[in-house]
Design a protein around this nucleic acid. Structure first.
Length: 181
DNA sequence: AGTATGATTGCCT
DNA sequence: GGCAATCATACTG
C-alpha cells in the first residue's frame, strides 16, 4: 500500500458505489498518522480502530453530530492512515440520491463529505466494511482514465492547515469548493 | 459525571 | 458572511 496522499491522488477518477449507488470520485483528502489533523494522530481509540486495521476497508465517522463521512483505509495494519472521500460526480442510482438528498440538482447530491454520505446512505453500519464486500464497489482503481489533478490545503480543519493534501479533478463542477490557482 | 470539540451544511441577515 | 443544529467521542476531575 502507498502513503495516504498517493492513494488520495490515485482515487481521483475512480468510480465508487455503495450498494450500487455512487459515481466518479472528483475530490479527496489524505490523513496520515503523523498528521495533527488526522483522527488517528492521538493513537488508537474505539472510534478510529478501523483506521488502524487492514487497508481497503471503510472508515465512517459522524461529523458535527449531523453528517456521516466516508473514508477509505490505506497503508498497512497499525499505521492509521486514510482518505476522506469529499465529492463525486453522480453516475449511478441518481434517482435514489435525489430522493435521499431532497433535491434534483446534481451538483448538490455529492459535493461535500456530508452530502455524499447522505446521498450514498452511509451510516455507522458501514464502518469497517471491506472494499471487497457486498456493499462497496471500487471500479478502475489503478487504471482510471488519466485526470489532471489539482492539490491544495484541506478544508474545515484547524491543525496542519497548510498541508496540501486535498486533491481534486481539474475542471469538475462537482467539487465541494474550487481550487485556488 | 461534566464538558469541550469538531475532516459540515443550510438557513438567516 | 455569520451562525445554529446536534451528538459521539475524548478528555478532565
Amino acid at each position: 500500500m502507498q502513503p495516504a496522499p498517493v492513494v488520495a491522488h490515485q482515487l481521483i477518477g475512480v468510480v465508487l458505489l455503495i450498494n450500487g449507488v455512487g459515481g466518479r470520485i472528483v475530490e479527496t483528502e489524505a490523513y496520515d498518522h503523523d498528521d495533527p489533523a488526522s483522527h488517528t494522530y492521538p493513537g488508537p481509540t474505539p472510534r478510529n480502530a478501523v483506521m488502524f486495521g487492514p487497508p481497503a476497508h471503510v472508515y465512517v465517522y459522524r461529523s458535527y453530530g449531523i453528517h456521516w463521512c466516508l473514508n477509505l483505509v490505506c497503508r498497512e495494519v497499525g499505521h492509521g492512515a486514510g482518505v476522506l472521500i469529499r465529492a463525486l460526480e453522480p453516475t449511478k442510482g441518481i434517482a435514489a440520491m435525489q430522493h435521499r438528498r431532497g433535491t434534483t440538482d446534481l451538483r448538490l447530491l455529492c459535493s461535500g463529505p456530508g452530502r455524499l454520505g447522505q446521498a450514498l446512505a452511509v451510516d455507522a453500519g458501514l464502518n469497517g466494511a471491506a472494499l471487497t464486500g457486498p456493499e462497496v464497489a471500487l471500479e478502475g482503481f489503478g487504471d482510471a482514465e488519466p485526470y489532471v489533478v489539482l492539490t491544495g490545503p484541506r478544508i474545515g480543519i484547524t491543525k496542519a492547515v497548510d498541508v496540501p493534501w486535498r486533491f481534486g479533478a481539474a475542471g469538475s463542477r462537482f467539487l465541494s469548493r474550487p481550487f485556488a490557482g
